[in-house]
């Protein structure tokens, strides 16, 4: 029982990260609406932020902005740098995906995958 509680405490961040990742994957695969697919893709992307940032956290540490205390423990700054840029790049790619969705809607009149496949089969 004690082992279970401690393993939950130790791995909770990783498990929630995995849950978010899998939920995003499920939305991307199972849903036919392209806007919904892009929301799922965003959820997947944000789960990666958590995957990178949570191992860099040190309990009792502080943010990596240097202070005058010589005994201060700083959390790892490297994942922060990688994810900082990844967020903005993620937004740019999502915007590109939404642009494609808008063009598809103009040409086919729908953003549902099944209906688009039907259209292309008819032709």
């Amino acid at each position: 029982m004690n082992g279970l509680v401690s393993s939950i405490l130790e791995h909770y961040n990783q498990w929630v990260t995995i849950f978010l990742m899998v939920a995003g994957l499920y939305v991307v695969v199972a849903r036919g609406n392209m806007v919904k697919k892009l929301v799922g893709l965003s959820v997947f992307q944000t789960s990666v932020y958590l995957l990178y940032i949570s191992p860099g956290k040190i309990l009792g540490g502080t943010a990596p902005i240097l202070i005058d205390d010589p005994n201060a423990v700083y959390s790892n700054p490297l994942p922060h740098v990688l994810i900082l840029t990844a967020i903005v790049v993620g937004l740019a790619t999502i915007a590109l995906g939404l642009g494609l969705v808008v063009r598809i809607n103009e040409v086919y009149g729908t953003v549902e995958e099944d209906e688009i496949f039907e259209r292309s089969d008819d032709e």
Partner: peptide, 30 residues
Amino acid sequence: LDAPDVAMTEAAVGSGVSTVLFLAALYLTK
């Protein structure tokens, strides 16, 4: 998780700009 830089970006991007873009795309589709 001690990442104020990343949090600032995520607050502005995730709940600000990307919501606006999704809403714009919804207005243009259904």
